[in-house]
Design a protein around this nucleic acid. Structure first.
Lengths: 341, 341
DNA sequence: CGCCGGCGTGCAAACGCTTGCGCTGCGGTG
DNA sequence: CACCGCAGCGCAAGCGTTTGCACGCCGGCG
């Protein structure tokens, strides 16, 4: 392994100059820099990450913690974060909390808290004040994605506004009996996200002068199957059947569409369905949905982190950056049938 | 940040002894060890990863390279690898090649090859001899998952045997007109995997004395939509319609099931469908499939790596470890209708 | 013309651990 | 009883960078 002193010798300078030339810190004459760069590339020199970390105290490595991996949202966030991190020359170390259920503490104590990462991105994770505190104490910046963490800068969409938008879309089409399939308070997804999406639905209805009927709320967990089952319940009695439904996630919404089909109903003729996410399968199912952009969220988180790393903990404003979302109309939503009601 | 010398002072020993006591290397009296451990935990001491790496030359960090993230197979492999790595006290650094398409070299030069990881797991990746060589030159163990890499120990299922099994299942049910929806040679999935699955289908048919008809092979890429479209083509003409189909992945198979439904056909009455993977959605769709166990593959890769790391490049046997697979019969396969043909 | 500031570079001290070597004892063997 | 071997521990030399400080030099300003 070729080290910095070989480069120094070859370029006829000291190791200090090599370091400065290569890192861009400090003043180095242009000519010298070129000579150093040439020597380095000829020798195939690359700085030793560990030596550099030891000297600077920074690892150029950031930890991303997720509760699951096998979900479109998380992988998308990671993908975005990874791409941006790579541009900055950072590595992404992945911590997946699923599968270590009882060992959540391990992740924090034995990995995160050790000097293996410079900062942490927590995706859809509810961190305990203790956990937040210990990270802060170590001077490790921390940003959350997908849900507010008290005292921590966070990127997330306004769930309430999102499902309000979905509902308003249906209202604008002329629907008045609009159901909601949505989040049971799921231990894993936590974050009031499900609750907020339900509240958005209620708020939109109220604003339209419609009283949200509790019997039109169908709780479900965030899987296709659970959405399917909820939709079956919802569509069972033709007299009580709503003309449209706002579903808290695309995966559940797809389940709902499949349920409708299985019952001989047609989407959107018999029931309009709108989801939330813009999941990769949404186009295939023609699902109208409110898109959020998880990759962008991952990128944004990195951006925020880099900023914080630069200014050495200048400000700790735990701002909650609101994220863009967008209604994507496809074929699963339409005006209610004229011949009904 | 509390360092090793503080611990040493508190335990009344030298730093050398602390190091040995905590790492388990070398001889340390039981009593001393306990004292050191107590001191360490009281002080909340954790070794500095970079210092340790610098001294030992090992980072306790392994790189996992994937071509995509947004696919069930990759995330599952990663999940398995991550879990096992954590048990060994290793971190997982993720490199996602999608999104850096033209920058693939960057990943290798600027990250992998630098001393940031001790070893590499390449998932479903076709590495160039150059890439393999440079890793080898650095003494970095490398194992592949999901496809053979020349000169590299690899874990993968026997694709040919797997699709043969799927086909034999259908044959045993009495089907004789069995189609195949499968892999176009997709630039991204590479690896002959698609080809082998087609060959397995052909082989099984031949063994049963049936000549595989080229017109019963429907190429598709590995997405639900592509499977859907292929199935539509396949099922279009009632006269030519097969009674069963072996699909090269569950996602495509689900697409095929949806296509059948859309055409008013019933699965398995009108067409039996069997997939490959045992995707998380397979149970929901009642899909008969040949399960592979990607999480286990991830774990196995780690196991292999740890072994190689231990014995400091003792043997370079580029063995290709065959992996288990298993037929999972659900409701998408049945005997062909008696009243046909 | 003298001084000052800053550019360009080198020296050497960290950074926090690991580990080879060497020094004690102590128990077991011949 | 002498000696050998080894468990148990400490000393100190690395591991390969970064960076504060020092120094020389040059140009500009008063």
């Amino acid at each position: 392994m070729v080290g910095i002193d070989e480069v120094a010798r070859r370029a006829g300078v000291s190791t200090a100059t090599v370091s400065r030339a290569l890192s861009g810190r400090g003043h180095v004459a242009a000519a010298t820099r070129e000579r150093v760069e040439a020597a380095a590339s000829e020798l195939g020199y690359v700085v030793s990450a560990s030596a550099s970390s030891l000297a600077t105290g920074r690892t150029r490595n950031i930890g991303v913690v997720v509760p699951f991996l096998n979900r479109w949202f998380y992988t998308s966030v990671i993908e975005g974060a990874q791409r941006r991190l790579m541009q900055y020359g950072y590595d992404l170390t992945l911590y997946n909390l699923s599968g270590v259920s009882n060992e959540r503490g391990t992740v924090f104590e034995h990995f995160l808290l050790r000097q293996r990462v410079d900062a942490v991105i927590a995706v859809s994770l509810e961190l305990s004040p203790d956990e937040v505190h210990s990270l802060h104490a170590l001077g490790k910046p921390l940003v959350g994605v997908g849900g507010p963490i008290p005292g921590v800068p966070t990127l997330s969409i306004d769930d309430l506004a999102v499902s309000r938008l979905a509902t308003e879309h249906l209202l604008s089409l002329g629907h008045t009996v609009i159901a909601h399939i949505g989040g049971d308070v799921d231990a894993e997804m936590s974050f009031h996200m499900p609750t907020n999406r339900r509240l958005g639905w209620e708020a939109a209805l109220r604003d339209a002068g419609i009283d949200p009927r509790p019997d039109l709320y169908y709780p479900a967990v965030f899987t296709m199957e659970s959405g399917y089952l909820a939709a079956k319940r919802m569509l069972g009695d033709p007299r009580l059947r709503p003309t449209a439904v706002v579903v808290a996630s695309d995966e559940m919404a797809i389940g709902a569409i499949l349920a409708a089909r299985d019952m001989g109903l047609e989407v959107p003729r018999d029931i309009s369905v709108v989801g939330i996410d813009d999941h990769e399968l949404a186009p295939f199912f023609g699902l109208t949905t409110v898109a959020q952009f998880p990759e962008g969220q991952g990128e944004g988180a990195v951006e925020l982190l880099m900023h914080e790393l630069d200014q050495a903990r200048g400000d700790d404003e735990a701002t909650n950056v609101p994220l863009p979302f967008e209604l994507v109309v496809r074929s699963s939503s339409a005006r209610p049938r004229a011949d009904r009601d």
